[in-house]
C-alpha cells in the first residue's frame, strides 16, 4: 500500500464560468483521519466525488491508492468504501439483503462473505435486526448499516460524506466510537462534516475549504493555537453594548459580535470574568478555544445558503 493514499495536484472543477474547485492540493497519508471542512457550497462534495471517480476534474492530477483517477477509478473502487451523505439503502430489501446485494457488486460471495456479514453485523450491533426491512430502522441504525455496507470489501480507504448529519447525540456518539475503532485498525478515513466538534474529536488533520479554495490545513489543536487565543468567553444579555464599550473592550485582546452574543478572546481571561461577576443581568459561557472558532474566523460569519 502506498504511503500516500490520496494525492491531488492543482485539482480544478469548473461548470461554465462557475469555479467550484480552484487548484486544490491534497495529500492524505495511510492510516490518518483527514477531515474536510467548509461552509455549504465550499466544494467538499465535489472534491469527494472526484476522489471516487464520479466527477472528472477540469484540470489537475489525482491519484488514489496509486491509481490515476478517473482513468482507473473502477479498479480503485474495489479497494475503497464510501458512505454517502444521504443513505441510499435499498428500501425493497432487509438489512442482510442490502449487504448481500451490495457485496455482489464487488463479486463477493461464499464463506468469505458469510464470515464478513457476521463480523460486520456485530460491529454495527445490528445482529438482531438482520431480517428487518429498512423502513423499520432508526436513522442511527440506517447510518450504521451504510457504514458496514461500505466495509464489506475490507477497504483500505473509507470515505464518509457528512456521516452524522441528522443523527441524535446518542447515535452520533455510537458512530464516532465505531469510526475511532476503524482508525485504530489502521484504516485511512476521509470525512466531511459540518460539526467542528466531530472534526476535532476524530481527525488527525483537517483542511478548511471555502469557495473552492483551501484556506488552511493542519492538526486541529495546531490550527486552534495558530489562530485563536486560548480562552473564549461568550456573553449575552441586557445592557451588553454599554458594558462592552465601557468595561470589557479594554480587558481582552480581541472581541467580536455575532447576533446578540459577544465573543471575547484572551490569553488571560480573569479580569473579564471578574467584571462579569459584577453584572448579574449578563449571562456568560467560559470555554477553551475550539475548531469552530478557527472555522468561523477563516470563513467569516455570514450565512451561507447551499446552492
Amino acid at each position: 500500500m502506498p504511503a500516500t493514499v490520496i494525492n491531488a495536484n492543482r485539482l480544478t472543477k469548473r461548470y461554465g464560468v462557475h469555479t467550484v474547485l480552484d487548484a486544490v492540493d491534497v495529500e492524505v497519508q495511510a492510516g490518518e483521519c483527514w477531515g474536510l471542512l467548509g461552509p455549504n457550497g465550499a466544494g467538499k462534495t465535489t472534491l469527494l466525488r472526484m476522489v471516487i471517480g464520479a466527477t472528472p476534474p477540469s484540470l489537475g492530477q489525482l491519484q488514489v491508492l496509486g491509481y490515476p483517477i478517473p482513468a482507473q477509478a473502477t479498479s480503485m473502487r474495489r479497494r475503497i468504501g464510501v458512505v454517502p451523505q444521504k443513505d441510499n439503502l435499498d428500501p425493497d430489501f432487509t438489512v442482510v439483503e442490502n449487504l448481500r446485494t451490495y457485496a455482489s457488486y464487488f463479486g463477493l460471495k461464499g464463506p468469505v462473505l458469510e464470515r464478513r456479514l457476521e463480523e460486520l453485523l456485530a460491529f454495527a450491533a445490528l445482529e438482531s435486526r438482520r431480517n428487518a426491512p429498512i423502513s423499520t430502522l432508526s436513522g442511527g441504525m440506517q447510518r450504521r448499516l451504510s457504514l458496514i455496507r461500505a466495509l464489506l470489501n475490507e477497504p483500505e480507504l473509507l470515505i464518509l460524506d457528512e456521516p452524522t448529519t441528522g443523527l441524535d447525540p446518542q447515535a452520533r456518539q455510537v458512530l464516532w466510537q465505531r469510526l475511532r475503532a476503524l482508525r485504530g485498525r489502521g484504516m485511512t478515513l476521509v470525512l466531511t462534516t459540518h460539526y467542528m466538534e466531530e472534526a476535532q474529536r476524530l481527525c488527525d488533520r483537517v483542511t478548511i475549504l471555502d469557495q473552492g479554495r483551501i484556506l488552511e490545513t493542519g492538526p486541529p489543536q495546531e490550527l486552534i493555537r495558530k489562530y485563536i487565543e486560548p480562552q473564549v468567553v461568550e456573553v449575552y444579555g441586557v445592557g451588553l453594548d454599554d458594558w462592552h464599550r465601557t468595561v470589557a473592550a479594554s480587558l481582552v485582546e480581541r472581541s467580536e459580535r455575532v447576533g446578540e452574543t459577544m465573543f471575547y478572546y484572551a490569553h488571560d481571561e480573569r479580569a473579564l470574568l471578574a467584571a462579569l461577576n459584577q453584572q448579574p443581568e449578563l449571562t456568560y459561557l467560559h470555554r477553551p478555544a475550539n475548531l469552530e472558532d478557527v472555522f468561523v474566523k477563516l470563513t467569516g460569519r455570514e450565512l451561507r445558503d447551499g446552492q
Binding site: R78, G107, L108, N153
Partner: peptide, 29 residues
C-alpha cells in the same frame, strides 16, 4: 477484519463483460 489478509488482486470481481449481471440480479430479487 484485519486489512492485511485482503489484497485487491484476489478480489473475485466478475470480468467486465459480465458486470451487468449483479445489476440484473438485484432487480430480479
Amino acid at each position: 477484519m484485519d486489512n492485511n489478509g485482503y489484497s485487491a488482486d484476489s478480489s473475485p470481481l466478475p470480468p467486465p463483460a459480465l458486470r451487468w449481471l449483479p445489476v440484473w440480479r438485484r432487480n430480479y430479487r
